[in-house]
């Protein structure tokens, strides 16, 4: 009898000790896993910090050598090691402006079609097609632009454009010849085709958040479809739309491959949109592997830093606006 109790107590003691060990093990593993995931979350932030720090360090020689003059100098001469970033910066801004001017109205139009006009059976297939197109690598657009679009422009579009505007004051300088095919305008159009699916799919998502009741109320007081879009849908989704446009702009500014093929890589600022130019990303893509000398490499890295800072700000504004829209939505 007494022996039995003692044995039970011993067993109980053993199981308790065993359980304690098991629990301690579980706790330890949980703490370890928690720490591991926390470290990875920090890694995302460190990655951003790492990018900025490494670019700044890489750009230092160039920043020291050229100072503020880097932003106002057009000269880009690897032989004399004089570098100025104005031409690529100008090219980046002009190509992105052309791209946005073409892509934003089209994207809004397609999004309005998808949410207000399209028969229900077609909505899903067209929507999916647009999302799939948004995932197509940009090099595809670049190769098409180089082999198909640029020769087409050179033969059939640019000569009549030049002739048409030859005697119009401002436009004659914007569309001054000769027709190369490749150039700033071509790059802008290819960029527009590339960002179109991106802006369209965000605008469509944003338009879909408008409560049906608001639209029905507008129809109820006799609005036409366009008036519903213009005075109900667009004002209601203003912030989200702006976010989508900024996201597209961020992509257009940093896009490399679609532009590099068709811009011509010339470090000159020309008033004509038909002339070859360059953008920040195209300059880096074209010249980085061939850059000899620390200063040349450093100047290219400084261009990269400028690009990263600009797109960072644009994308941050975009995300902030899209976030605000989600909060407003609840």
């Amino acid at each position: 009898m007494a022996d039995g109790v003692a044995v039970d107590e011993v067993r109980l003691g053993q199981t308790e000790a065993h359980l304690a060990r098991v629990f301690a093990g579980l706790k330890f593993r949980n703490a370890l896993f928690h720490l591991l995931t926390l470290a990875c979350a920090w890694a995302v932030l460190l990655l951003l910090g790492g990018v900025i720090v490494s670019l700044v360090i890489g750009a230092l020689p160039s920043i020291r050598a050229f100072g503020a003059g880097f932003y106002t100098t057009e000269v880009w001469n690897p032989v004399t090691e004089k570098f100025g970033g104005m031409a690529p910066m100008y090219g980046t801004i002009v190509t992105s402006t052309i791209a946005m001017a073409l892509a934003v109205p089209s994207a809004f139009g397609i999004a309005i079609f998808l949410t207000e006009l399209c028969p229900f059976r077609l909505r899903r297939p067209i929507g999916i097609a647009i999302e799939l197109l948004a995932g197509i690598p940009s090099i595809i657009f670049g190769i098409w632009g180089l082999f198909v679009f640029a020769p087409f422009l050179q033969e059939h579009v640019q000569p009549p454009l030049i002739a048409l505007f030859a005697n119009v004051p401002v436009l004659s300088t914007l569309f001054a010849g000769p027709p190369y095919g490749i150039g700033v305008l071509t790059a802008g159009i290819v960029l527009a085709i590339m960002v179109l699916p991106i802006i369209t799919s965000i605008s469509r998502d944003v338009f879909e958040t408008v409560p049906d009741m608001l639209k029905e109320a507008a129809y109820g007081v006799g609005c036409t479809t366009w008036e519903v879009v213009r005075f109900v849908v667009i004002p209601y989704t203003r912030i989200g739309l702006l976010g989508g446009v900024m996201l597209g702009l961020g992509r257009a500014l940093g896009e490399t491959m679609a532009v590099t093929f068709v811009i011509g890589n010339a470090h000159r600022i020309k008033a004509s949109l038909l002339a070859p130019g360059t953008t920040i990303s195209a300059t880096i893509a074209n010249e980085f592997t061939e850059a000899v000398g620390d200063l040349y490499t450093s100047a290219l890295i400084q261009l990269g830093l400028i690009l990263f800072l600009i797109t960072f700000i644009i994308l941050a504004i975009s995300r902030y606006m899209l976030m605000r829209m989600h909060i407003q939505e609840g």
């Binding site: 979350a41 951003l48 990018v51 940093g254 490399t256 990269g304």
Partner: peptide, 28 residues
């Protein structure tokens, strides 16, 4: 709070220019 910050930064990295990533890895 960390999650909010990481989400924000992550969304920016999602559409950051990929050529800058190339420069970063080149440097490192």
């Amino acid at each position: 709070k960390l999650t909010v910050v990481v989400r924000f930064i992550n969304d920016i990295l999602l559409s950051a220019p990929s050529i800058v990533v190339g420069l970063f890895v080149y440097e490192v």
